[in-house]
């Protein structure tokens, strides 16, 4: 199980590389979105290890907030207001 967590941490560092060195802002937004989904995977592995529903609550809330954050960032990139 420790190996699984190490693989996910390597994935997180790939996303962080893209956030740090991405040539355009939309590359950074994509990497941010993917980082959110990978953290949901982290919560899944932790809940499989500990058998508590605490981590699943975190996963649900994180998936929701990550989705809303991606939508807000892409609206900002498109240059529109938040109304339409």
């Amino acid at each position: 199980m420790t190996g699984c967590i190490v693989v996910l941490i390597i994935c997180c560092f790939m996303c962080l590389y893209r956030i740090a060195f991405g040539p355009t802002p939309s590359d950074r937004i994509v990497a941010n979105d993917i980082l959110g989904i990978i953290i949901v995977g982290f919560c899944g592995i932790f809940s499989a290890l500990s058998k508590q529903d605490l981590y699943m609550n975190i996963a649900l809330a994180w998936a929701l907030l990550s989705f809303i954050g991606s939508i807000a960032l892409s609206k900002f990139l498109e240059g529109r207001t938040y109304d339409d």
Partner: peptide, 22 residues
């Protein structure tokens, strides 16, 4: 959570790709 990710992830990808093209 599985159902939710399957619904939202393509939508977010669609929004990001459209925004970056515009």
């Amino acid at each position: 959570c599985i159902w939710f990710i399957f619904m939202t992830s393509p939508t977010a990808a669609h929004a990001i790709s459209r925004a970056s093209h515009k």
